[in-house]
Design a protein around this nucleic acid. Structure first.
Lengths: 119, 119
DNA sequence: CTCTAAGCCTAGCCTTTCTAGGTATGAGCC
DNA sequence: GGCTCATACCTAGAAAGGCTAGGCTTAGAG
């Protein structure tokens, strides 16, 4: 599950240049080192959502007899891409802090109820 | 929105010791530096979900005339906490790579259609 | 002719999260 | 006594996002 980060990632890819849906899937797979291998059923609706929100604009093109719908960031889309990246850094740092506390707790009390808890 | 990372974060907190729901909310707020301020309606269902899944176990305790439901990791919960952390690192690194590409693209082609795209 | 890759699409399901309500106790204040 | 606040639990239902699973077309290879 991409868990709500899909939009930000799509915007990030489009911030490096226009792309079509199928190419976007490949770009995400490549840039993520193979971690993100998204089904079309995730990406296409996301693009439509972003277009409805005015963050991307699309146009048709034809390459090698095949039609493509090419997406590009709008001005607010470019701004949104920046925002999403900032939000990600903040979110990521926060998660890291929470996980980080556990790094030192490996030698803590073993699983089970301490305290006044009774099972 | 916590976007699917809630379970991992809850498990991470419980990996440092047993806690009750209300205390968990405070722990997440504190450890995240105030970034995570979760409503009870998110945390309580999450705990119940984790208990149904066998990752945490609960017991009642009474402190200062108030009853508390104290949650603690089970053995598989402890394993799951580790897994979630590993998954997070991988996910986080992948997102970072995708966002990272854009770092250098700020001077790229301005927003708009390059290529053969027509609006 | 068949199969694969490139390309697009959507309906409906499932899961997670949040909103918005409810209940109860203890403590401090007037 | 009555008020409010912090502590502490709970759930129903809405909203949103992503995925499954289908469907469509053209080009090219075998």
């Amino acid at each position: 599950m991409m868990r709500g980060h899909l939009d930000g990632l799509v915007l990030a890819v489009l911030a490096t240049g226009p792309s079509h849906g199928y190419g976007l899937i490949e770009a995400l797979r490549d840039r993520s080192g193979g971690v993100f291998d998204l089904p079309e059923g995730s990406v296409y609706p996301a693009l439509h959502r972003l277009e409805r929100a005015g963050l991307v604009a699309s146009g048709w093109s034809e390459v090698g007899g095949r039609r493509r719908r090419v997406y590009s960031l709008t001005v607010s889309g470019r701004r949104a891409a920046e925002e999403r990246r900032t939000e990600w850094r903040s979110f990521s740092a926060a998660v890291e802090r929470v996980f980080g506390v556990g790094d030192r707790a490996e030698a803590g009390p073993a699983a089970g109820f301490a305290d006044g808890a009774a099972v």
